[in-house]
């Protein structure tokens, strides 16, 4: 008798496990791969609720580690948020799906200057999510000199008070621009000079960080840091002694856009997600939460005036003219990889 009861109980358990398993697998799961600290998580919950789609949200730290993850592993993602030059690389390597823009009607709200960008000239693969610049975040109490040039990052007065980016293109760009070269150079000699400059700088540098930079600057661990503009905006709001500057030698302007990998199995749901993220209220929520600039015109209009009019976030056209996008080049990427390994290992 006991055995029969046990048997029935086990069967009941197995059936319940089986059916609940079925329920969850019939619901679409969308794998989203985005930068760390780059979304208002409430918007994901809103999306899940509105469309009854489960979102499996994962984050990466740099374009390069995202690229390695999607190309070398079996991990399949449905929506990615790479930057311009990485999108160019993914398109070149046939890894992206051509979007059906009819499913993404909200893309009409994207500002003109971000449609048909250099990295996606026919505007078929990507929908911009955020844009921003790279510059120097500094603490006005700790830095007495005028900060308007990358040179200050080599000033021995600030030894052990400088934070650099642990991201190869961003850090090598600083070296290249200080030398007066293009950040998109393909010359081995120029890249090596920039590498040497950054190796010489190592004793002055406190650390090489990415996502930690904001907390460290807010806590006044360091006086100067190379940062992405959105990090600077959030940090400035938390510590009023901080200021963000785009150096006069120019800098990098970038766009992170949403794309769908060719091997995604949920392309329609992915397009739904991209459309949702481009909707005015959602784009506004995200822009306010992450602190970066929104390319969505309607959301931009609704931003708080002091955010919109902050010249360090949304610079004047004269400043934008000094900025450059990163461009992908296969040969140069190998040179950048090698240079960066040597800088970090030194």
């Amino acid at each position: 008798m006991k055995k029969i009861v046990l048997f029935v109980l086990i069967m009941v358990m197995l059936i319940t496990i089986g059916t609940t398993g079925c329920n969850s697998s019939s619901k679409v799961t969308l794998n989203v791969y985005n930068w760390g600290e780059y979304i208002d998580k409430d918007t994901i919950k809103m999306f899940e609720k509105e469309f009854d789609i489960k979102v499996n949200y994962k984050t990466f730290t740099t374009n390069e580690d995202m690229y390695v993850k999607i190309t070398s592993g079996n991990a399949k993602y449905d929506v990615l948020f790479p930057s311009d030059y990485m999108i160019e690389r993914l398109i070149e390597e046939d890894l992206l799906y051509k979007l059906n823009m009819e499913n993404i009607p909200n893309s009409k709200f994207i500002a003109d200057e971000f449609t048909s960008p250099l990295y996606d000239p026919s505007n078929e693969y990507s929908v911009p999510y955020m844009w921003g610049t790279v510059g120097i975040l500094y603490n006005k109490k700790m830095v007495t000199d005028v900060v308007d040039s990358w040179d200050i990052l080599w000033n021995e007065k600030y030894s052990q008070q400088i934070l650099m980016q642990d991201s190869q293109r961003d850090s090598l760009m600083v070296g290249l621009l200080k030398l007066g070269y293009s950040m998109n150079t393909t010359s081995e000699d120029e890249i090596n000079q920039a590498k040497q400059l950054l190796i010489d700088q190592r004793p002055l540098v406190l650390g090489y960080v990415v996502d930690e930079v904001r907390d460290k600057m807010v806590n006044e661990e360091a006086a100067l840091a190379v940062v992405w503009s959105g990090e600077a905006m959030i940090a400035k709001a938390e510590n009023p002694d901080l200021e963000y500057v785009i150096p006069k030698e120019g800098s990098n302007i970038w766009v992170d856009a949403m794309v769908i990998p060719e091997n995604s199995e949920n392309k329609e749901a992915a397009e739904l997600f991209i459309n949702f993220m481009t909707r005015t209220d959602i784009a506004l929520m995200n822009a306010e939460w992450v602190g970066y600039n929104t390319p969505q015109t309607q959301a931009y209009i609704q931003l708080e005036p002091d955010v919109k009019n902050d010249k360090s976030a949304y610079p004047d056209q004269s400043v934008i003219d000094t900025l450059e996008f990163f461009v992908y080049d296969k040969k140069a990427t190998e040179l950048f990889n090698k240079a960066w390994t040597e800088i970090i290992a030194d």
């Binding site: 390069e64 580690d65 390695v68 993850k69 070398s72 650390g207 090489y208 390994t341 290992a345």
Partner: peptide
Amino acid sequence: LSGGKVSLIGNVIEQQFLVLGDW
């Protein structure tokens, strides 16, 4: 603990696999 300043062999290996894709 070194803020990325002290690179050990483990750091270089990690970088080759996860960031540079140079297996």
